[in-house]
Each structure stands twice: as C-alpha cells, then as structure tokens.
Design a protein around this nucleic acid. Structure first.
Lengths: 348, 348
DNA sequence: TTGTAAGCGTTATCAT
DNA sequence: ATGATAACGCTTACAA
C-alpha cells in the first residue's frame, strides 16, 4: 500500500480510497490502479480486519467430517452463511476435547465472525470457553439447561424411543442396542433413551443385548460381532448410521438375514442409509434443519450481540425402510433408493 | 491489554510480556495476571497476527466434503499439519470456481499461513490466483506442465487403464464407462484414459457405453439408468466410488446381477467401496498419500518460501473385490470387509 | 478531492 | 525489569 501510494505519487490515504472504490479524481484513480497492478498489490486481510473488526469468515467445529451427518449439517449451514456473504470453514476435532478448546481459543479470538460448535463431549472448562467466547457461538447438541449459549438441539432419547416402538410394534422382542461411547453426550442420551423405551414396553432389560463402541463404521461392526458372540437378538438399534452399516456387515457375515432374522434401525438418516442393501431404516434427528437454524441464530447474534441466549429444538422422526420391514424382502433389493425416504411407509 | 496494564499499574509493554510469559518480576507477574483475570482478558489473535505475520492456520479447499475421498485426504493432511502445531480448516467449494477464487483471495491474503487446493476445474484466471497467492499454495491434482506451483498428482489415465485391463483380463468385452463432467480436469483425464485403454486392447469404441453425470451418488445412478436403457454392458468402470455405488443400485434395480452379469469397478478406493454389498473393486488414486505429501510440501514452503516449485506423483493401484470377481459370489457377501483391502486378490 | 494523523490490539526495540 | 515508542498494514475522521 505504501509502495503503491509512493509509486502513484499520492498519499497512502488516497491510495486506500481508490482501492476501496470510494472517491478519488479520475486521474488519481488511474495512477493508483496502474501502480497497484504494476507491483501486484494484494490487500492484507489481517490488517483490514484489525480495523474493521470483522473477517467475513464463520467456522464450524464438528467431531468427524467422515460422518455423513455432519456433512449434511455443514451443507445446510453453508447455504445460510453464504447468503450473508460470508464463507464457511470447517474443522474436524476428532473428538479430542483439548483440540476443540484450542480451536475455540484460537478462532474465536477474532479470526472468525462467529462459530457453530457441535461437541460430543463437554466439560466445564469447555463450556466456559464457549460462554466466554469473544465472538458469537452457537452450540448444536445437548447442553446443560442453564448454559448461556445459543443452542439448537433434538430429542435423541425420543428418537431412540421411535425406533424401539417401531420394532416392538412389528413383533421384535430381543432388541439389541449398539451405542457409541457413554462418556459422550449423545451416547449417554441414547443409552438412557433405550433403557426408558424398553421399560415403557415392559420388556426386561438384558445387558447382554447392549454393546458400546465408537461412533464409526469399524467400531460398529466390531461391537456387533461381540454382541452376536454372546447373544441372539431379533433386532438391533444402532446409535448412528455408520454403526448401523457396520452392524449390517457383522450380521450378514454371521449368516443372519436382514430383516428376516434381525431387523436393523440406524440413526441420523443420512444418505448412507439409502445407499445400503437392504436400505436402512433410520431415525432422523433433523441434522440439516438443526444446522440451518444454528446458522440463522448465529447470523442474528452477529448482527445483534445483545440478544438473550436462545434455545431451539428439532423433533426426531423415523424413516422405515427395508432393513426393518415386516414383509420379507427379495434376495436383492427391489428398487433404487428414493430421494425422499420418509415417504416410504411400512407396508403392513 | 490497555485496560489490563492500567489496572495492574504497569506499562502496556510489561503487561504484554507477562501475558506472553517472557520476563517480569514476580510482583509484576502477579498483578498483571490478576488484572487480566478480573477483566476477562482474551488476546486478539488478529492483532497478534498483524505483528507476527502468521496465524497458525492452514486451509484446505476441496469441491465436496461429502465425497469420502476428500475426507481421507483431509485426515492425512490434518495429521501432518497438526504435527507442526497448526490447525486445519476445510472449505467446500461446491465446484463453483468463482467461489474457489473468492476463497483464495480472501484466505490467502494472510488469514492462513498456507493453503492446499484441489480444484476440479481450473481456468487461467484461477491459475493466476494460485500462482500469485501471497501465501504458499500447494495444488493436489492435474495442472498444466508449466504452472509454477507446488503440485501433487496421480495418473488417473493409468488408473482407468488398470480397471480396463482387469476387466478385459477377466473376459469382459462390453465395458461401459460412467464418468463425471467432461469440463473438469479429472473427468477429461478419465475419459481420455478410458478411450486409450480400449484402443490398447483393440476393443472398438461404442459411444453408447459411455455416460456422463456429476461425481455424485444420485448422478451416478441416473447416468447408469440412462446407459442401461439403451445398451447392455457386461462391465462398468465408474469415475469414482460415489458413482459406482449409484451404478450398483441402478444395476440391481434393473435386475442385473453383480458381478455375474455386470462387473463394477469404482475409483478412489474409499471406505465406501468396502461398505457395499458386494464390496466394490476400486482403483486407488492414493488420495491419503497425496494429501500427506501435499501437506509436507506446504510446510516446507512455509518454512522456506524461496524453494523452487516442486511436483510429485503418486501411482494408482487396483483393489480387486467381489464386484468384479470372476468367481460367482454367494447371494450374500461371504465375510466382513477387511481393513486392508488391497490384500484381497482375485481368486482365479 | 486530497493529505495528515489517529487509531485497530499486539509485539519488539531500545533506552533507562 | 521496565516503560516509551515504533512498527504491523490498513481505514477513516478531520482539515486543508
């Protein structure tokens, strides 16, 4: 900038004005533009931000970008964020809470105009960092009732209940549950939901039917193998779709037919559920909708930081597909996946 | 900072020193720390970066985070980047080139210490932006031979040839090709590779056997449906794994058995290929390895910007699985997916 | 319209 | 060890 101004023979202020398109005589504009082009001037966004107190950047922190549920959430967020002229940056924390806190510290210190965070583990320390963030933060996921942060959640306990209701309603009684880690917020909520749902139906709890792994494909498969080695379920509720796909593999490898011998229901209702054979029934937790709302809350708060903390809730719903259908499916799936899965109902 | 210094009754410089852990008498340290805690001081990273000329951030721009190949690449990059104490931010461009250029302009202007970009379309304008970037940039993907940018590539033409060789070698003759858009770099390269490979084997080209869509699941399915409506292939090469999954659905829906009637080979060899029934053969383009190398090149260049432009190449390889096996598979897959797919060879 | 100068929030240099 | 003071690169009153 200094160089450009000198080269154009004008003051640094005039150069700045021209480069920002405000004012300047035709002659000045010409000279400055020429000088800028000659030296290949590119503005330093950091310096500009120091002055303007904004960056035009918004960040999203999730545990695992490999999980399609976060991809869907990200897409919904991106659409909203882009409409405000900002750009979205995503960071995968890998579930390492120190990493997440570090990110929060670094990014929230003004590198971005705001953040959306979807933590699966949340400590006090972490919560403090969220609340004290210098830039607006919106949390997607369960949070203590009194946390003073904008928050969009779903009711995953109810989501699990939907799955159990459906399975019980179609005659299943030995219902297994393949969950993620219990020290995570979603893992704990789903565990509680599963136990409550069985109780609701008067089905005695058999701990052998509950198995825990990570929220990932390989872990889901391994967990299901352990479960099958010791007991014999007629249905499996899985804490997310990645686990459900792993369970499907384990079941088929063990010679079980799905859904005839064992029905499978996943959670998150991602594209992955529709990609499988048989297509997976899955509980939608409204991830895209939660993302969209979180982004809107964030934009509102960026516009007006004095807003009181808000909380929104998106209800779960169940998409029933072949993996838990009551009619025996053909050896191979009958048709291509539909674009709008929830339109498929159970046929009985 | 100003406030903290005043409150502690010391100069702004002393406060800065204490907060950065350099020097200060015990008494000063105590006072400053106390003052900082009282007012809830958080450093402004933007201001710090203006001074230090670094942010500790590295960005990765890819077309579509929903594509598992980019997830794998991202994980490899993240591992390297994290080892340098930096954090990785990802941006999905959605293939919109203006978006990518805009991102480049914004981020590369010092918001990040460096960028890795994997463009699927590249215009002159775009290339200029890459070359002129104020911060180090590494490109993953094909680029003009003379582009003065660090570049990690694979040979996707050869990758397609591997697939065709394998199919021809197992007796297939009517080999179809479901590609992505021809106006993308990978789409064009794969198209050329397919045509060259057929020629190599003396198989006459039948344009009916070639179909084009997007690099996505739904597009792959639709493209395959169009192809099946007009001709009758005994094998299908797909330009990536998402397309291959779509093709699998279209084939099964049309009553074709895989691999007995139609063999299917995907590309990218992502986790998705191992998740399907039957498991998909796929050409690995070494995405994780390319990511890892790109990250290393970037760190080197950040450390020494005077380095000459470098170019590295990662060879493709073929993982053969059930979808193109010559032995008729069981109605259901025989076993669970293996962690290391390339160890599975064809059995005949 | 144009130039001077005062920030934006830090860090770093240099006397003291 | 500490305190002025000058950067860092830019924007923006305010005067001229």
């Amino acid at each position: 900038m200094h160089t450009v101004a000198a080269r154009a023979g004008v003051s640094i202020a005039s150069a700045s004005r021209v480069l920002n398109g405000i004012g300047g005589s035709p002659e000045t504009i010409r000279k400055v533009r020429a000088a800028a082009a000659e030296v290949g001037y590119v503005p330093n966004a950091i310096a500009r931000s120091l002055q303007s107190q904004r960056t035009g950047l918004v960040a999203l922190a999730v545990e695992d970008i490999g999980n399609p549920v976060y991809v869907e959430m990200m897409r919904a967020i991106e659409a909203v964020v882009a409409s405000s002229g900002r750009q979205l940056l995503v960071h995968a924390t890998g579930g390492r809470i120190d990493n997440e806190t570090a990110l929060l510290r670094r990014l929230a210190n003004r590198y971005v105009d705001g953040m959306i965070v979807s933590p699966i583990r949340v400590t006090d320390d972490h919560l403090t960092a969220l609340v004290d963030s210098p830039v607006p933060v919106v949390v997607v996921g369960q949070l203590g009732a009194d946390a003073a942060v904008d928050n969009v959640r779903t009711d995953s306990r109810h989501g699990v209940a939907l799955a159990v209701d459906h399975l019980v309603g179609t005659g299943r009684r030995r219902i297994g549950f393949v969950n993620g880690p219990l020290d995570t917020v979603p893992g704990a909520a789903r565990d509680a939901g599963f136990r409550a749902a069985l109780l609701q139906h008067g089905i005695p709890l058999d701990e052998d039917l509950i198995e825990v792994g990570d929220f990932q494909y390989a872990a889901g498969r391994a967990a299901t193998e352990r479960l099958l080695a010791r007991t014999d379920p007629d249905a499996l509720v899985c804490a997310n779709d990645l686990i459900a796909v792993g369970a499907l593999h384990a079941l088929l490898a063990a010679g079980r037919r799905v859904p005839q011998d064992v029905a499978v229901v996943g959670m998150d209702d991602t594209e992955l559920a529709r990609m499988m054979f048989p297509q997976l029934s899955s509980v939608s937790l409204g991830s895209a909708e939660r993302g969209r709302r979180a982004a809107e809350l964030l934009l509102q708060r960026i516009a007006d930081p004095t807003l009181p903390p808000r909380r929104e809730q998106v209800p779960p719903s169940l998409a029933i597909r072949a993996s838990s259908g009551v009619t025996p499916p053909a050896p191979r799936p009958a048709g291509p996946p539909t674009t709008h899965p929830s339109s498929e109902g159970v046929t009985s």
